[in-house]
């Protein structure tokens, strides 16, 4: 008999060492997330995957699955909080979907659609952030960074390079680049790096590719993020 937990009443099997997110993904249950990626060490910072485990709020991506846990995930209260947390990410940076080349392929936007986010709700911070277009092939628009650290983890864990880091405290948090000039052109980043392709928003972009697929024909223009995410990550789990 394998061990099980329940998620919204559905019985979900798990193996020792799996997190609630791992177990859910394998069973085809979507838990919203942005900073989580099955290939990388869980981070637990975006807090979109917050679920109720035996009545207590926990991050599904870091919390271990344990026999008999009763997990609540797709509830009106949790989804309302997730919508507010997504709105927080929108007002923290400067996200203008209609003029962003990532529109339609952006997970932040996809999640906002999924959570039925219709406005930003909170007052904007109008943060002053820079664009680093110094590199011939890759650019960074810091206005769109949500500090998920996926690029940091990918560069360290897959590329073995440590091109990125997170610095600062509180609302002054920012992505930094590992070069004396602080510019991308002076790093050893390459277009083939996993870190270049992992950004869930439009913060890290590959130059001259932004409009190859027309707006209207992009991922979240036609599909919900839960289906896309499950199809992609379920597949990755099996590999």
């Amino acid at each position: 008999m394998s061990k099980t937990i329940t998620i919204d009443g559905q019985v979900v099997p798990f193996e020792d060492g799996q997190t609630i997110m791992d177990a859910a993904t394998a069973a085809g249950v979507y838990i919203p997330h942005l900073c989580h990626h099955p290939e990388y060490t869980p981070h637990g910072s975006c807090k979109l995957c917050t679920v109720k485990v035996n009545g207590r709020n926990c991050s599904a991506c870091t919390f271990p699955a344990l026999e008999g846990q009763e997990v609540l995930n797709d509830t009106p209260d949790l989804n309302a909080d997730r919508q507010k947390i997504t709105q927080m990410l929108f007002v923290e940076g400067n996200h203008f979907c209609p003029s962003c080349e990532k529109t339609g392929n952006c997970q932040l936007q996809g999640l906002a659609y999924h959570l039925n986010m219709l406005d930003n709700h909170f007052p904007h911070f109008y943060a002053t952030r820079q664009v680093d277009a110094s590199h011939p092939e890759v650019m960074i628009d810091h206005n769109r960074c949500i500090f998920c650290t996926l690029c940091v983890r990918a560069s360290h864990e897959t590329d073995g390079k440590d091109v990125f880091g997170i610095s600062g405290r509180g609302l002054n948090k920012h992505l930094i680049i590992n070069s004396p000039s602080g510019e991308l052109k002076d790093t050893d980043i390459s277009i083939d790096d996993a870190a270049v392709h992992i950004c869930p928003t439009g913060a890290i972009l590959i130059k001259r590719t932004g409009y190859q697929i027309p707006i209207g024909q992009r991922i979240y223009d036609h599909q919900q993020i839960d289906q896309v995410s499950l199809a992609r990550e379920h597949h990755q789990d099996e590999q």
Binding site: S45, K47, I85, M88, E92, I146, L171, K173
Partner: peptide, 8 residues
């Protein structure tokens, strides 16, 4: 600044 709810 680690998590969204507290940072923002």
């Amino acid at each position: 600044g680690f998590c969204t709810p507290c940072r923002v």
